[in-house]
Simulated scan of single mutants.
Amino acid sequence: MEPLSYCHRKVAPPGSAIYYALRFSPDDQRDALVAVHAFHAEVTEIPDEVSDPGVGEVKLQWWRDEVQRLFDGTPRHPVSQALAPAVARHDLPADAFTEMLDGTGMDLAYGGYPGFRELTVYCHRTGGSLARLLTAVAGTGSAASAHFAHDLGMALTLRRRLLSVRRDAQSGRVYIPEDELEQAGVSREDLLGHETPPAARTLFREQADRVHAFLDQAESHLPDAERAVHRSGIILAALDRALLREMAKDNFPLLEQGFELTPLRRLWIAWRTARQQQRLSRKAA
């Protein structure tokens, strides 16, 4: 299969959040963005695909070698082959790819995090490296975009892990800090249930509030002049906000049901958000 087609099938099927984030991104960024998202998916899905951490480590090492091949100009995997033009055109940093692999290594090594400080390291390596690559594609290279990438990456990772809290717990991994679980009176065993107890709903709301705070911080960093080129990431943030609001409407019953926006609503949010960012950047110019 042609490398870019593989990437689109992997992470951006029609109607998905990434599909619309790409659809309204600048034309000259689209191929690079889908390749970056596909790399993130290939790597971060490894812990969900294997039951033996040793097998996961073997897969991770293969990807470490593949990143080296990518930067040597001899990629083998369709995702790496799709990334090759992006690496050259946008000067994507190699260490962002290896950081993402290090984050996945934490998935294989750790089942929990004592406090938020330790969890921040994980979020920085997985989501932060993704957002760093997305902003590198935008090409501004400003301090503002670096701060935007950090906070966006934190938010994207925390939201993703909040939505998959029960599935992660079934795999022996919990991404809510242990001290916050204890303070809320929620045990790891509670996260395996089929009904969300009141204490867990309160805890999940607090986690969602943290995601909102990082999203607010992320957008506050960007000057209006840079918003249009970063609109793909801003669209992802807007879609996450809407998803969090849907969870809040039902008071976070995350152990018994999943949440997903309809394709039509995703389209509306993405279109509206893209227009807002373009308008702000035009006014700033």
Rank of each mutant, 00 (worst) to 15 (best):
Asp28Ala: 11
Thr273Cys: 07
Ala38Asp: 09
Pro198Lys: 01
Phe116Cys: 10
Leu133Thr: 00
Gly73Val: 09
Lys249Val: 15
Val50Gly: 06
Val121Asn: 09
Gly233His: 02
Gly233Val: 00
Leu152Met: 14
Leu191Arg: 03
Pro3Met: 07
Thr196Leu: 10
His90Cys: 02
Met1Gly: 15
Asp65Gly: 09
Ser171Arg: 15
His37Tyr: 15
Ala213Gln: 02
Asp28His: 14
Val174Asp: 09
Ala274Ile: 05
Ala21Ser: 15
Ala17Gln: 09
Thr157Asn: 11
Ser142Gly: 10
Tyr20Phe: 15
Arg231Phe: 13
Ala270Trp: 02
Phe116Asp: 15
Ala248Trp: 06
Ala274Ser: 10
Arg23Gly: 10
Gly127His: 01
Thr98Ala: 07
Val121Thr: 13
Thr126Met: 06
Pro85Ile: 05
Tyr113Asn: 12
Ser171Gln: 12
Arg279Asn: 05
Arg266Asp: 03
Met1Ala: 15
Gly185Leu: 05
Ala143His: 12
Arg89Cys: 02
Ser220His: 08
Glu206Phe: 05
Ala38Arg: 02
Arg245Pro: 06
Ala86Asn: 00
Gly193Leu: 12
Ser145Tyr: 05
Thr120Ala: 13
Asp190Leu: 03
Leu267Ala: 09
Ala238Ile: 03
Glu99Val: 00
Asp151Pro: 03
Ala88Trp: 09
Phe204Ala: 08
Leu215Ser: 11
Met247Asp: 11
Lys283Gly: 06
Tyr175Gln: 05
Asp240Ala: 15
Thr126His: 03
Leu60Phe: 01
Thr74Leu: 10
Arg266Val: 07
Ser25Arg: 00
Ala38Tyr: 11
Arg272Tyr: 07
Leu254Trp: 04
Arg275Asp: 01
His37Leu: 12
Val87Met: 06
Thr44His: 11
Met154Ala: 05
Ala38Cys: 09
Gln276Phe: 04
Phe148Trp: 09
Pro223Gln: 14
Gly112Phe: 06
Thr74Ile: 10
Asp91Ser: 13
Ser80Val: 12
Ala225Val: 12
Ser5Trp: 00
Ala184Gln: 03
Ala35Gly: 03
Ile234Thr: 10
Met247Ile: 12
Asp72Val: 01
Arg76Phe: 06
Asp216Pro: 11
Glu118Phe: 04
His40Leu: 04
Gln257Ala: 07
Arg159Pro: 00
Arg64Asn: 12
Arg272Trp: 13
His221Thr: 00
Asp168Tyr: 13
Arg201Ile: 03
Met1Ile: 13
Pro198Tyr: 07
Val121Trp: 05
Leu4Met: 10
Ala38His: 10
Leu4Arg: 13
Phe24Gln: 06
Asp95Ile: 00
Leu267Val: 04
Ala41Lys: 15
Gly105Ala: 14
Leu108Trp: 00
Ser5Met: 04
Ile234Glu: 14
Gly105Val: 04
Leu33Trp: 07
